[in-house]
Design a protein around this nucleic acid. Structure first.
Length: 510
RNA sequence: GGCGGGGUAGCUCAGUUGGUUAGAGCGCGGGACUCAUAAGCCCGAGGUCAGUGGUUCGAUCCCACUUCCCGCUACCA
């Protein structure tokens, strides 16, 4: 039976152009998706855009466009980003699509039927200029006016009719679910935050708005549109054709294996989403991973600080794979990380150019001169050769576990360690000094070529383009890659041609 | 304020269920080699493991207190 794997990025809110945070979430997700693909899984990788809400409605008005055309335009920039980042996504969902609307409205109706939605009033201190509600403890009285303590702007008491979701009802069930599924929320530190939040008591959630119209209408009351989370989160199942739960996509891929998200939206994914699903009697996803943020130097990137590193700029200047590699290798996954041109350049030079790229180069160049550009025959592995080659089969399970548990850094550490070993092996065995011992020379070359093959396969999920370039040496194409084959020490067939490879990563002169 | 996490080499981080000389990568200094993108390999310098006190034969790791940093504390996403 086929093995299935469903992984998602957040759907992005396109009120601004794509930034490093979007790129990071997407690249991370792509790494997992690609790994699973070469490990024999049928993978469904979903990304998309969340296009409803007041901000979008306003932004479209400001641009003198109708919201629908406006969304088409901005959603496209995110779709383009998928190509720019070389994502292997299976689908791109937009919340303005009919398939999504149908899905959301059906889910709403289910929640209504189960008694989890009721009509009431949403009220609070509202600041028009801040577009935000404030609690009693967030306002103060100044010159006979109520103002926000934070912004100082005037607030007024607003009441609005709204539908509510009985989130409070699900508090215990959620805690029970976290208890029974200790790996549901990762990383562990963030799980604690969610649990303590839920334990502190859940209030019912306002899930509709009458104050604007750009959204999916509440089926039973056309004056209301369905508010953000109930709309947005549903994308994860609407892409699988929910409510048609007998179709293949849904049957095979739901519940999702992991939703990759940023830590800023963890609560919505780890609390609201499972609560909606529990209420609608839909299985809950297996895992929510809330990753950290990419900071620039010490600070969060912001326009005012002028320290924004635009992913597109970086890709234009350094290439895509260096950025992908950097984000995976240099950021401690789960924690916040930093990026700077300086660190990126160091990483490119030491890891990609000197270590990986140069190893491919020195081995293939040597093989060209000494083996007539053919995979050598007459090989006889010694203990040294077997030791370095067997490390991969010995770690096959570990590597799979790393990916299954989102231990990205452990996965990369193994690769980097293998590269050090490979360079050391080549150095220590001195093939250039073995020209009168052809069998030994051939064996060293063969072993080294196998190392290139194995390491390149492991790198494929992270830097797919470069990995494929490298595997071209052996005429291995994308569709032929299997992760499992890194356990094979005799994969390369004698006398097959070794294709010359270009320099994979140019060193950056500093 | 409450709850939680953290302060380990110049930088980024790992680690110790408490036990002889505390680890990696990068950066830095030196060496031998030459197949390679002057890459790679070897050796080395550099840390009172935030501070104070306690438990213990012994603490960087356990406990208490101090100090600094960060996160969460609901309807922008």
């Amino acid at each position: 039976m086929d093995k299935h794997y469903y992984i998602t990025t957040p759907i992005y809110y396109p009120s601004a152009k794509p930034h490093m945070g979007h790129a990071y979430s997407s690249i991370i997700t792509d790494v997992f998706a690609r790994f699973k693909k070469i490990d024999g899984f049928k993978v469904y990788f979903l990304t998309g855009t969340d296009e409803h809400g007041l901000k979008i409605q306003r932004a479209s008005e400001e641009n003198n466009m109708n919201p629908s055309d406006f969304c088409d335009k901005i959603s496209k920039t995110f779709k383009d980003l998928c190509k720019t980042l070389n994502l292997s996504n299976s689908d791109f969902i937009r919340t303005t699509e009919d398939r999504h609307k149908k899905s959301v409205q059906h889910l709403w109706t289910e929640l209504e039927k189960s008694g989890d939605i009721y009509l009431s009033k949403y009220s609070g201190w509202y600041s028009v200029s801040d577009e935000a509600f404030y609690n009693d403890n967030e306002i103060e009285t100044k010159d006979n006016y109520k103002v926000s303590k934070v912004s100082g702007s005037k607030v007024e008491w607003v009441e609005e009719e709204s539908f509510f979701f009985r989130l409070s009802k699900w508090q215990d069930k959620l805690l029970e679910y976290y208890e029974k599924n200790p790996q549901f929320i990762l990383p562990e530190s963030r799980k604690n935050e969610v649990v303590s939040f839920v334990k502190s008591g859940l209030k019912d959630l306002s899930v509709s708005r009458k104050s604007f119209s750009w959204g999916i209408k509440v089926p039973s009351d056309k004056d209301h549109v369905i508010y953000v989370w109930l709309d947005a989160l549903t994308n994860y199942i609407s892409a699988l054709k929910y409510p048609d739960i007998s179709n293949d996509l849904y049957k095979k891929f739901w519940p999702a294996d992991v939703h990759i998200i940023g830590k800023d939206i963890l609560r919505f994914h780890a609390v609201y989403w499972p609560a909606f699903l529990l209420a609608a009697k839909i299985p809950v996803p297996k895992r929510i991973y809330g990753h950290g943020w990419i900071l620039s130097g010490e600070e969060k990137m912001s326009k005012s600080k002028g320290n924004i590193l635009d992913p597109i700029d970086i890709i234009d200047n350094y290439g895509l794979d260096p950025l992908r590699y950097y984000l995976i290798k240099e950021v401690s996954f789960g924690n916040d990380g930093t990026i700077s041109k300086d660190k990126l350049e160091d990483c490119i030079n030491s890891d990609l150019a000197n270590n990986y790229g140069n190893f491919c180069q020195r081995v293939t160049a040597f093989a060209e001169k000494n083996c007539n550009s053919k995979i050598p025959s007459k090989i006889n592995f010694t203990e040294v050769d077997n030791k370095i080659l067997n490390k991969f089969s010995e770690n096959l399970t570990n590597l799979r576990n790393y990916i299954n548990n989102q231990k990205l850094n452990s996965y990369v550490d193994f690769i980097v360690g293998s590269l050090f070993d490979a360079n050391k092996y080549f150095n220590d065995e001195e093939p250039w000094a073995k020209k009168n011992d052809i069998e030994r020379l051939n064996t060293i070359i063969y072993t080294s070529l196998e190392l290139i093959r194995k390491i390149s396969i492991m790198l494929y999920p992270i830097i797919p383009d470069s990995s494929l370039k490298s595997l071209k040496i052996f005429d291995i194409n994308e569709k032929d890659i299997t992760f499992d084959s890194i356990k094979d020490n005799n994969f390369l067939k004698a006398n097959n041609k070794i294709s010359k490879t270009d320099i994979l990563f140019k060193k950056i002169l500093k």
